[in-house]
């Protein structure tokens, strides 16, 4: 039973940076290219994030995310360059479909922006422990109930997947066919999903009692067992990031 968190547990200069600074980085590196509208700046931001992810040793975990988004990007490129009306400059043709140069340029700017956002967020998720994220937010005033819900999802979803498997086994043991045509599968839906729902409701009630027994609803300001991550260069890094943002705004205005 593992967590579905994407966090890569390593030590690196990127891991050392605190969550808020990373959040500021993320905002600046997404907003700045959009403000300036320069594709070159988008490409630059995207490359910086990529280098940081590689230096944090988290490239391997980035791959599945990248692969998933490749699918989306490919469809963006095809639609933008071949199926949008009003373009004239045909670059190449595959079968009956013409691909236009203007479309491809437009598509590439969308792709860059998308990758930029994706990598900036991935940088945070891959190199920050979920508990550090949530606890930082709690220290800033997020309710501890919401914090608990966010954190528990990481472990409870894999558990539910496990339960699903057991339930499927139990129903097949009673002669329920779960494989075959759509009709057979539809018939198997209720016997499979019913116990999952009831099980998780019962599990939730039991867990709620266990949480109450550990003073979950105490109305005091909480303390934290995990040390608050302290980043030595927090102020200069944040200042530089802010400066970047100001420069990009200035660039746009001038």
């Amino acid at each position: 039973m593992t967590s579905i968190s994407l966090y890569v547990d390593k030590k690196s200069i990127v891991h050392d940076v605190d969550f808020l600074t990373k959040l500021i980085y993320c905002c600046v590196f997404i907003v700045a290219p959009i403000i300036t509208g320069a594709v070159i700046l988008g490409t630059f931001s995207f490359l910086v994030s990529l280098i940081l992810i590689i230096s944090a040793g988290a490239l391997k975990k980035l791959m599945p995310i990248a692969a998933l988004s490749l699918f989306v990007l490919l469809s963006v490129i095809i639609i933008q360059s071949a199926f949008i009306q009003g373009y004239h400059d045909v670059l190449f043709t595959i079968g009956p479909v013409h691909f236009y140069r203007e479309g491809l340029i437009h598509a590439s700017s969308i792709v860059v922006r998308f990758l930029d956002i994706l990598l900036a967020f991935s940088l945070i998720v891959l190199t920050t422990h979920p508990a550090d994220m949530v606890e930082t937010l709690q220290r800033k005033g997020l309710s501890h109930r919401i914090g608990y819900v966010i954190l528990s999802v990481f472990q409870i979803i894999p558990q539910m997947a496990q339960t699903m498997k057991t339930i499927s086994d139990a129903q097949r043991s009673r002669g329920l066919e779960t494989e075959g045509n759509i009709f057979i599968r539809a018939k198997a839906f209720l016997p499979l999903i019913g116990p999952v729902v009831i099980n998780s409701l019962i599990g939730t009630r039991e867990r709620a009692m266990a949480l109450e027994a550990r003073a979950f609803s105490a109305e005091v300001k909480h303390t934290y067992f995990r040390d608050e991550p302290v980043y030595r260069y927090k102020t200069p890094v944040r200042l530089i990031l802010l400066l970047l943002l100001i420069v990009s705004i200035a660039w746009r205005l001038l």
Partner: peptide, 13 residues
């Protein structure tokens, strides 16, 4: 309680 499983918070690793 009886079931050790549901007594874990699920939020701590």
């Amino acid at each position: 309680f009886q079931n050790p499983f549901t007594q874990m918070t699920g939020a701590k690793d």
